[in-house]
């Protein structure tokens, strides 16, 4: 464990708490893409189900349980408790265009052609693109609540911090995980535009608004 990864994971944790806080305080899931949240459930369940047969560490176990449970809980909040506050008419990204190609990529690029390893690859590829419905929705509405942008910033920072972690591990341990690295770079790049607007508006105390 190095500090980049630790802060990356903490940033991921923070993003979940920010999202829960946003839903609870505004009593609404307005501005949050259900499709993105559903993809995260698929990502975490497919990747972290290995807690059932693989023991890495207490840290690893607790985090995995947390991410599976919290993503499911958020989906429950959106689908049941705050259902009327979710507007499917602006959450229109075609998720099937992501899942198909990701499944194909997972079948081609994996470390072993077994069910669980292909599933792991799929979760990595899917995670890198899971934010797209959310960013698409943001693009459509052209603005976002400040708390929602903090959620996205924390989520984006998580994978961005994994990049120096991989560089560090390459030099200190001599290992490289090309599948995770490639997908991680793509995932981080997708946030570039968001981060630009975030730093030039929200951090300066202005409202997050995309140019028309």
């Amino acid at each position: 464990m190095n500090l980049f990864r630790l802060f990356g994971d903490l940033s991921h944790l923070a993003s979940i708490f920010i999202l829960l806080h946003k839903i609870r305080t505004t009593r609404s899931c307005r501005g949050i893409s259900f499709k993105t949240q559903a993809l995260y459930v698929a990502v975490f369940v497919s990747r972290y189900l290995d807690i059932l047969w693989e023991w890495v560490s207490l840290y690893n176990f607790v985090m995995k349980v947390f991410f599976i449970a919290s993503s499911c809980f958020i989906l429950y909040l959106m689908k049941m408790k705050y259902r009327p506050t979710h507007d499917p008419s602006i959450d229109t990204f075609r998720v099937e265009f992501l899942v198909g190609p990701c499944a194909l990529l997972a079948l081609i690029f994996n470390y072993k052609f077994t069910f669980t390893e292909v599933l792991w690859s799929l979760s990595i590829f899917l995670e890198s693109l899971a934010i797209l419905p959310q960013l698409f929705m943001l693009q459509r509405t052209g603005e976002a609540e400040t708390i929602t942008t903090h959620y996205l910033a924390a989520l984006g920072a998580y994978r961005a911090l994994y990049i120096p972690n991989w560089i560090y591990r390459y030099f200190s341990e001599g290992v490289v995980d090309p599948i995770a690295v490639t997908a991680g770079l793509v995932q981080t790049a997708l946030y570039a535009d968001f981060f630009y607007v975030y730093f030039t508006t929200v951090i300066q105390g202005q409202k997050f608004e995309l140019p028309a």
Partner: peptide
Amino acid sequence: GDAARAKDEL
């Protein structure tokens, strides 16, 4: 370096 999946990463 070796190409492998980092099992300890989240």
